[in-house]
Amino acid sequence: MKKNEDFKDWLRENLQEETKEIYFSEEARNKVRESMHMSSKPVTASPRWWNKRVSLPRAVVSFCLAGLLLLTAVYTRTFFYVSPQEIARLEAQPIIFLHNGNIPFGALQHQVTASLEKDKGVGKP
């Protein structure tokens, strides 16, 4: 096996021989130049509004965000105190289910019950 330096020189010489006809062509170089030239050209057409750069001061953005949070809190009553009496009142609100013929269930039930007792109710359903 060749020694280190000999091996290195031998390998390099052969690879250089193998790649001696490999060049970065003028055509390829011109493509690079063209690409650079295109990148540095100023943009003549004005961008549409959705492509325009928007820059807002940080304070404005923070203020708007805080305002939005506050409005949401007010709307959802997040920070409003609800007393136990109010809770009880809300819970006591009747919940009416309307069945067929728009007759509330309670009324229907009352009618059926009344029809079963002789001296009660208007008449049979």
Partner: peptide, 15 residues
């Protein structure tokens, strides 16, 4: 491919 890559090397270096 080598040529394409080499082109991109210089374009990228410019940017």
């Amino acid at each position: 491919l080598a040529e394409e890559i080499t082109q991109e090397v210089f374009v990228k270096s410019y940017h």
